[in-house]
Nucleic acid binder design. Sequence first.
DNA 1: TTATATTTTTAGGTAAATCTAAAAAAAAAT
DNA 2: ATTTTTTTTTAGATTTACCTAAAAATATAA
Lengths: 220, 220
Amino acid sequence: MQSFTEENYLKVIYHLAQKTTNVQTNAIAEQIQTKPASVTDMLKKLAEKELVDYVKYQGVTLTEKGKQAAVNIVRKHRLWEVFLVDKLNFKWDEVHDVAEELEHIKSVDLIERLDEFLGFPKSDPHGDPIPDKNGTFAKTQFIKLIELKIGESGTITGVSQHSSPFLKYLEKLGLTLGKQIQITDITDFDGSVEISVNDKQINISREVAKHILISNNGKI
Amino acid sequence: MQSFTEENYLKVIYHLAQKTTNVQTNAIAEQIQTKPASVTDMLKKLAEKELVDYVKYQGVTLTEKGKQAAVNIVRKHRLWEVFLVDKLNFKWDEVHDVAEELEHIKSVDLIERLDEFLGFPKSDPHGDPIPDKNGTFAKTQFIKLIELKIGESGTITGVSQHSSPFLKYLEKLGLTLGKQIQITDITDFDGSVEISVNDKQINISREVAKHILISNNGKI
DNA sequence: TTATATTTTTAGGTAAATCTAAAAAAAAAT
DNA sequence: ATTTTTTTTTAGATTTACCTAAAAATATAA
Ligand SMILES: [Mn+2]
Ligand SMILES: [Mn+2]
Ligand SMILES: [Mn+2]
Ligand SMILES: [Mn+2]
């Protein structure tokens, strides 16, 4: 069994490993909100427990065992987020911090029953896939909204930024999961994107368009 | 805010204070599964934070602030137990340990919404009252089953022992919350109690009878 | 290919919550 | 009123997860 702190390290390493294979000390420190020196200490400990492969100065990768543990925490995090939104009427921008705590509750039985209670959801309130109890989940293929051309359309199925202000902003614009959108124009001047959603035309900045994930896209 | 460990101390002191006004160091140590020396250290710390009144060698009592904090943890513990039984189909003997973890989740919003989701329950799966968000709850008056005389009857509304084997045993006998019972005989030899429940006659030991709580009792 | 900058690690230390062993105080027994 | 027992506290260590400051390794730039 891992401690609360170890679990957080594993989770952070897991997420960072989506971008680069060898995860760097400083990157972890930034995520955990701690100092690089503390990270080095912890990496040694996790290596000792065979949860990561760690070579001095070369960063870390999760071992199979470490990946298993990390995915399980991600699974719990996302299931709790679904619970909060579906059952307790939280908004999608309010659930992350509470889920950060709930994801560390130990009982295996609890999470199996919660999964069942929620109807075995496949994705969380932000569109992120929920691993099943064996840790497997479909690698969904998204395209960023910013990558769509004029005239192309698709469905909003995820976001790559989970901050409360960003999510609140999307909600205000009506850009929520499942919504059908089409690109109607792209401004030359600043690259901002005009899209039609809910039979209305709205304009979003490049920065926002980068963090909206689209599936089922195609020309119409 | 209190740490996980401090919260556990406060809760244990609160429960022990139901029996004796001045709670003893050794009693706390036994409950927390730690050594008396560690308890002394923590009592100093809690006194420092004005959560307990502590006089060397004289035991402790909770301050108003400490009692508030303790009752809040008890509230969370019991609400989570209701959730586990009512929504996730846990048995009443399976919920305590998980609730011990869940009770430390910090969000105030979470517990208010959970309370609402559960329909503002007044008692937990063991018949223990759930304090409202202000910490107030009706002091229910129970009588122990062992105290009933032959011919007297009543309703099972609680248990004063929460161990899994005990609760499982009661369930097997059909002695669950809400059941109407009547004392039909008390054995001279060992003081064991014969009761009628579910139109059947069953026999329970004095020890078991001590831990079943009855309300609405009266002669028939 | 040196010099400079960045990243990472080591060394040495702190705070929280534990522990054991021994001393001190309080309670119970003689 | 002593002696004995029990309870509680102190003293001094340990472990976990941090920290700062300085040294070492690696990467980047001149
Ligand atoms: Mn989240
Ligand atoms: Mn999420
Ligand atoms: Mn309980
Ligand atoms: Mn209970």
